[in-house]
């Protein structure tokens, strides 16, 4: 991205419920886990992430989207790997 583009990015009203195509891989933070699957919020969109256990809470993980319903802004995905830490982690 050029420097000029960086200044022009974000001059728009972004939805609170972004959509994701099935098959896309996204790197997102897991908010909560019930032990075997996790839940992530991207804005008000919810993704249930299978295989994201308690150890992934507040970690950034790669998720492959497997189902997505635009009308409810919710879907499911598979945990691929942990890719990053929170910026406030010690």
């Amino acid at each position: 991205m050029s420097v000029f583009d960086k200044y022009l990015t974000g001059w728009r009203l972004r939805t609170s419920r972004p959509s994701f195509e099935v098959g896309r891989e996204v790197d997102i933070f897991i908010a909560e886990s019930n032990g075997t699957s996790g839940r992530a919020y991207i804005g008000d969109t919810e993704l249930v992430v299978e295989g994201a256990g308690p150890e992934t809470i507040e970690k950034q993980v790669r998720v492959r989207v497997t189902e997505f319903d635009e009308t409810t802004a919710s879907g499911r995905g598979e945990f691929v790997e942990v890719v990053g830490e929170s910026s406030y982690a010690e």
Partner: peptide, 12 residues
């Protein structure tokens, strides 16, 4: 309004 809002999935 969501003006300027960006998600991690939009741009890292």
């Amino acid at each position: 309004t969501g003006f300027g809002r960006e998600y991690i999935t939009d741009r890292e």
